[in-house]
Amino acid sequence: MDGYNFAYLDEQTKRMIHRALLKAVAIPGYQVPFGGREMPMPYGWGTGGVQLTASILGADDILKVIDQGADDTTNAVSIRHFFQRVAGVETTTATTAADVIQTRHRIPETPLRAGQILVFQVPIPEPLRFIEPSEQETRLMHALEEYGVMHVKLYEDIARYGHIATTYAYPVKVDGRYVMDPSPIPKFDNPKLDGNPALMLFGAGREKRLYAIPPYTPVESLDFEDHPFEIQRWEHSCALCGSDRSYLDEVITDDKGGRMFVCSDTDYCQTRRGDVA
């Protein structure tokens, strides 16, 4: 580890991020600006999440990194190697064994427990951005709780598609106050945000914002009375483990139209297969 501070970031930067995190935990769902640092990877690869993980990681912590639910995809592998190298921490693929889980686009299927920390990589932290391009205006809208436009988006979905067609980054209201973009997780995972015993931290590297959902915080997905919030469902079960309650990926297996549906959470799938065998 010569030439690097523990977990790459210098201690001053970590302190700055800790302060921002404390504020974020104190005001659930509120976007706290922080002085984002250059990381040795491009924006869009999870620089926000990596900075949060680097700040909170302790020497005895066990780290798990997932990308779209899988432990073995490029993003997950490279970030795991990064922390092995700059922090020398133990890593795992088992959700239950991990203290810190950095994730892109999924919340693990295995229920999290108190004491665990889930770190999300966030591309666009501002849920109002699609309709209001001005940052000054969106901050004012958050401050004054002017959230009518969020329903304009959902209304537009129903008008165009007959149902709420937003399937990921589905807006939520945290603790009855701030409307928050839960990062591009599928709306299948939204119910897991509600009252979760784990601490959830969100980091956006390019936009230099972080926010948090403290443990056991009520999180509600926005909807209409006559078009209530619904999660995705599949007609299939996982082709490998047979689960009928996990988020499934469609995998093309040949060029003759062959396909199969498998769990996107690889650890969950493997654990179940181990249990069956």
């Binding site: 009518g148 436009v149 304009v152 209304y155 008008a159 909807d223 209409f224 009375e225 006559d226």
Partner: peptide
Amino acid sequence: ANIGERLMAQGQRHY
């Protein structure tokens, strides 16, 4: 959606 915006801002939640 344009006509409904002010109503939604007032808290109407019935599509």
